Amino acid sequence: MPDYIEVALRSIISFSVLLIGAKILGKQTISKMTMFDFVAAITLGAIAANLAFNTTIKLHLTVIALIIYVAIIFLTEYISLKSRRGRRFLAGDPTVVIQNGKILEENMGKMRYTLDYLNQQLREKDVFNIEEVLFAILETNGTLTVLKKPQFRNVIRQDLKITVMPEKKMPIELIMDREIIKENLEQNGLTTSWLELELRKRNLTKYDVVYAVLAANGKMYVDTFKDYIHSPIDKE
């Protein structure tokens, strides 16, 4: 068998084995990545490492393997984009692990998802009592999405019928490390003289400022090099 055909077959087989292994290990192992991302990152990293230092493998064979993997990843991403069934196979489906305050042990078992990890991720969502949870869903990248029961959700202004001023702009960075970001000023119809006037109102110049940003509500936040904090926390 020619070397290039052997390399092509080995690349496809190893990719398939890693994908199957990732599915067996479950979502907890690959938190923050989908199964496909996990496999792609490992394989590309391994091939690149071998390309860099493994002199026992011929250079052109490693390059062929790398090209094949890139082609496989591109093809699978295209399939995921065009086919819902293909996307479900490659990335998996979200899994409900809590429903109406009840833990679904069977679903957790299928995902190799432990109670300790569930409790950890609930605490990260400020949930310390499972009875507060209406639904908890383990996403395809290993993160946990939590919907609390209505009586435990935070009250928002809409609930209280409080009028809210509309915000149509993103916060605008004005100064960073004493440097005025002129592009941001120009793009938003602001001038340097306006900014300098705002700083003078605070008895400041740009040389005093670490960071200044104009919030969506029109208020300007300014952080200076002198914090005037006599006993800072966690001082090193």
Rank of each mutant, 00 (worst) to 15 (best):
D93C: 05
D93R: 14
D93N: 14
D93Y: 15
D93M: 12
D93F: 11
D93I: 06
P94V: 02
P94F: 08
T95M: 06
T95C: 09
T95Y: 11
T95A: 04
T95D: 02
V96C: 04
V96P: 03
V97I: 13
V97H: 06
V97C: 03
Q99D: 06
Q99L: 07
Q99W: 01
Q99A: 05
Q99T: 05
Q99N: 09
K102S: 07
K102W: 02
I103Q: 09
I103S: 04
L104G: 05
E105F: 15
E105T: 11
E105C: 00
E106S: 09
E106V: 12
E106M: 15
E106D: 13
N107A: 10
N107I: 08
N107D: 01
M108G: 05
M108Q: 06
M108F: 09
G109I: 02
G109M: 12
G109Y: 10
G109L: 10
G109F: 13
M111C: 01
M111W: 00
M111F: 02
M111V: 01
R112D: 02
R112M: 01
R112P: 06
R112E: 01
Y113Q: 03
Y113I: 00
T114Q: 05
T114I: 04
T114L: 04
L115G: 05
L115K: 08
L115R: 10
L115C: 00
L115M: 13
L115F: 10
D116M: 13
D116P: 00
Y117G: 01
Y117K: 10
Y117S: 00
L118K: 03
L118E: 00
L118M: 02
L118V: 02
N119I: 04
N119H: 11
N119K: 10
Q120Y: 14
Q120T: 12
Q121C: 03
Q121L: 12
Q121H: 05
Q121E: 09
Q121N: 10
Q121D: 00
Q121R: 12
L122W: 08
L122S: 03
L122K: 07
L122Y: 06
L122N: 04
L122E: 03
R123I: 00
R123K: 14
R123H: 10
E124R: 15
E124H: 13
K125S: 11
V127N: 07
V127L: 07
V127G: 07
V127Q: 13
V127W: 12
F128C: 05
F128A: 00
F128D: 08
F128V: 00
N129R: 15
N129M: 05
N129G: 07
N129F: 13
I130T: 08
I130D: 01
I130K: 13
I130L: 04
E131V: 12
E131P: 06
E131A: 14
E132Q: 15
E132L: 02
V133Y: 08
V133I: 10
V133C: 08
V133L: 07
V133A: 02
L134E: 14
L134C: 00
L134G: 00
F135Q: 08
F135N: 07
F135H: 12
F135M: 04
F135T: 11
A136K: 15
A136V: 11
A136I: 08
I137D: 03
I137E: 09
I137S: 06
I137A: 03
L138V: 12
L138P: 15
L138W: 15
E139M: 07
E139H: 08
T140W: 15
T140S: 03
N141G: 10
N141F: 12
N141I: 01
N141E: 09
